[in-house]
């Protein structure tokens, strides 16, 4: 197991540096002049240019700049935004909101998706299964932002069950509706994946053997079908965190949630290079670490992996 963890951790390193390097390169070098990227393309005085050059080591070779950026990223020394506030402080404020939103969405899709998927799989061909399958297809086919608008309009405006916009407080209750919207599409995927996985495992030889041993149906399902069926679902949840981050940009926009996604989106529109690179790098780091965690969970669920 230790060797597996060690190997897996080693794999994270090149992935993190590779992807942040790509983002850094895209934002700072592909955008023509880095000064433009830093200033949002507005005309600025030579003094500011000199100051920015010094701050971002623009006189240094590209890889040195990138190295300094990574060092700054890990020491939360991210410079200041156009508005003059330290970027680290802005992210520090927005990040917990998005984390809360993502955790809620992840919990919704995992809990409801797995439960519904298990029931659908166990009752294959029955009414519940059919209904849930069709409903999940419809949910998958509707883009998150359309779902967001519709739910905001129906639940928030017409029915008045939830605040249509979240605002600066962004506590758990406020975030429920956005979290549902964010988690809904993945919920459908989790449901379908769980169902397929359950169906596959139900016909496994070891399930028949377990039945032949005299175990009750309940125990066969809980102990022998469920755990084995969760293995692919867990992998999906890890990979899906990336989808949630993308979705967060949209959802936070619709519900006006003061989170990272919203901040990133504004920074992108404003051409605020340092902010974009910082946020994206942090999100990539979170994503990579979350997948690392999922892999460890996977190894725990499936002992064969540990020795692979």
């Amino acid at each position: 197991m230790l060797r597996f963890i060690f190997r897996r951790v080693l794999q994270v390193i090149p992935v993190f540096f590779g992807s942040t390097l790509i983002v850094y390169y895209l934002v700072f070098s592909m955008s023509g002049s880095p000064i433009d990227a830093l200033s949002g393309g507005k005309p600025i005085s030579p003094a500011v240019v000199a100051q920015l050059t010094a701050q971002y080591h623009l006189d240094q070779p590209f890889f040195i700049q990138y190295g300094i950026f990574i060092k700054n990223l890990f020491t939360f020394n991210l410079g200041t935004s156009f508005s003059g506030r330290p970027i680290a402080a802005i992210i520090g404020q927005a990040f917990p909101v998005t984390a809360r939103l993502a955790i809620m969405a992840l919990a919704i899709e995992a809990i409801f998706g797995v439960t519904a998927g298990v029931f659908a799989g166990l009752r294959k061909g029955k009414l519940f299964d059919g209904t849930v399958l069709i409903a999940s297809l419809v949910v998958i086919a509707i883009p998150t932002f359309v779902l967001g608008f519709v739910l905001q309009f129906v639940v928030g405006v017409k029915l008045g069950w939830a605040k249509p916009t979240v605002g600066s407080a962004a506590d758990w209750a406020d975030l429920t509706l956005p979290a549902v919207v964010l988690g809904l599409v993945s919920f459908a995927y989790v449901l379908r994946l769980t169902r397929t996985s359950i169906l596959e495992n139900m016909n496994a030889d070891y399930v028949r053997t377990a039945t032949a041993k005299g175990l009750s149906r309940r125990r066969v399902v809980m102990v022998h079908i469920l755990r084995n069926s969760l293995i692919p679902v867990v992998t999906f949840l890890g990979a899906d965190l990336g989808g949630l981050m993308g979705g967060a940009i949209v959802t936070e926009g619709i519900f006006n949630v003061p989170g990272v996604g919203n901040t990133l989106y504004r920074a992108v529109l404003a051409g605020e290079g340092p902010m974009v690179v910082s946020i994206v790098s942090i999100l990539v780091l979170v994503f990579v670490l979350a997948n690392l965690l999922v892999d460890l969970l996977y190894a725990w669920l499936d002992p064969r992996i540990r020795y692979a």
């Binding site: 496994a204 030889d205 070891y206 399930v207 028949r208 053997t209 377990a210 039945t211 032949a212 041993k213 005299g214 175990l215 009750s216 149906r217 102990v223 022998h224 755990r227 084995n228 293995i231 669920l301 499936d302 002992p303 064969r304």
Partner: peptide
Amino acid sequence: ILELRGRSIGMVPQDPMSNLNPVW
């Protein structure tokens, strides 16, 4: 039938590779 399984009628299946649950 459940009562009979295991206690009255036992089974040894064919393929030893697929008949044990790999995660337990």
